[in-house]
């Protein structure tokens, strides 16, 4: 399929070049229109390229619309967090606005290129400016933007300063070249003090062994979270900047050495429920079809944490599985984990 597509594109391109060159050869030998004192195109060229511009503009608009229907299914499925619902709504409203502007201005641009092409008898009209028009297209974008700005700022503020009805579960995401580790705050829900200077032997996260709060912390390579409970992620990095990115939760925050950053969110759908979502099922079916062709294991949907800030050679392969489950399942899982004190 790929080879075929490549071949078709290459052949079409060659044919197009040959044809265009021939058109020019023929037209320039037949019409002696070209005036020597100017380099301006001939009327025929203006006519031809007005039409080609219209064609390319139409192609662009059709391609844009087609791509939304055809590739829209590749985009992320519905958000799996409460604030994600808000940001996705804002995203699609913004897409609606910019899509509308796009679908007005692009066709207009290429239509003008076609309509006013310098054919025989075409004359330009001397227009310097038009204050009324200019006022209109300054004021309308200003109003639309004001709405988008306000909506955006309120959404951002509410995400960054969450109000908790119950105490959030505190989880540390610890990044290093090249992998993630998660640390749950344990029974006291307070993370023990930590610094890379305490790293020694089995204490790979640099937890202060003298800090009582850290002894019940739980260090895991696969993070489980209960559905519907607020979570406060605390990010820490061991070496260079990493970025904790969990696309399905619409969560991202950099992990900066020397600083602890944070991001609060509430997962609102379990992994099991997400696997039943129609868009997820379509995507997974497609992925597994492709994996089957390549002779690879079938894939099952999971939430995943990835690194989204260039961090070195294996930047492309830093992952941590996240499982969202019911509270009972979560408590069950929690019981099976060892505390920091037990691992020492």
């Amino acid at each position: 399929m790929t080879t075929l597509l490549t071949a078709v594109v290459v052949i079409l391109a060659i044919v197009a070049i040959v044809q265009i060159v021939r058109i020019f050869e023929v037209s320039s030998t037949m019409s002696g229109e070209d005036e020597p004192q100017t380099g301006q195109p001939t009327k025929k060229e203006n006519d031809l390229f007005g039409k080609i511009m219209l064609l390319m503009g139409a192609g662009l608009v059709i391609f844009s619309i087609w791509s939304f229907f055809s590739w829209g299914d590749y985009t992320l499925p519905k958000p799996a967090s409460e604030h994600g619902i808000e940001t996705d709504r804002l995203l699609w409203i913004t897409f609606g606005v910019i899509g509308l502007v796009y679908l007005i201005t692009q066709p207009l641009l290429f239509w003008f290129a076609y309509k006013y092409r310098g054919r025989k008898g075409q004359k330009a009209t001397y227009i310097e400016h038009n204050n009324k028009l200019e006022a209109i297209w300054t004021i309308i974008p200003t109003i639309v933007l004001a709405v988008i700005i306000l909506y955006g700022i309120f959404t951002w503020t509410s995400i960054m300063n969450p109000e908790y009805e119950e105490e959030p579960i505190v989880v540390e995401l610890y990044a290093k070249q090249f992998g993630w580790t998660a640390r749950l705050a344990g029974e006291d829900n307070i993370l023990g003090e930590a610094n890379v200077r305490f790293i020694e032997g089995a204490n790979t996260l640099g937890i202060d062994e003298n800090d009582f709060n850290g002894l019940d912390d739980i260090i895991v390579d696969e993070l489980h979270l209960p559905v519907g409970k607020p979570v406060l992620l605390k990010m820490r990095s061991q070496d260079v900047i990493h970025s904790a990115y969990i696309p399905h939760f619409r969560v991202q925050m950099n992990c900066v050495p020397g600083t602890v950053t944070q991001f609060g969110f509430t997962p609102n759908i379990t992994t099991a429920e997400m696997r039943q979502d129609s868009k997820v099922m379509r995507q997974i079916a497609h992925i597994n079809e492709l994996r089957d062709d390549m002779g690879e294991e079938p894939y099952e949907f999971d939430f995943v944490l990835l690194c989204n800030k260039i961090c070195g050679s294996a930047h492309y392969n830093m992952q941590l599985k996240i499982v969202v489950e019911t509270e009972e399942e979560y408590n069950q899982w929690l019981k099976e984990q060892k505390t920091f004190a037990e691992t020492l």
Binding site: Q40, E45, N46, L109, F112, Y116, Q122, L145
Partner: peptide, 25 residues
């Protein structure tokens, strides 16, 4: 997002410069 306003002005002014022109391609 304020930058979008002068940028929009520029884009519209290009469009209206083409409008009713005698375009040499």
């Amino acid at each position: 997002l304020l930058i979008a306003i002068p940028s929009a002005v520029k884009a519209f002014n290009y469009l209206t410069t083409l409008w009713k022109g005698n375009l040499q391609m």
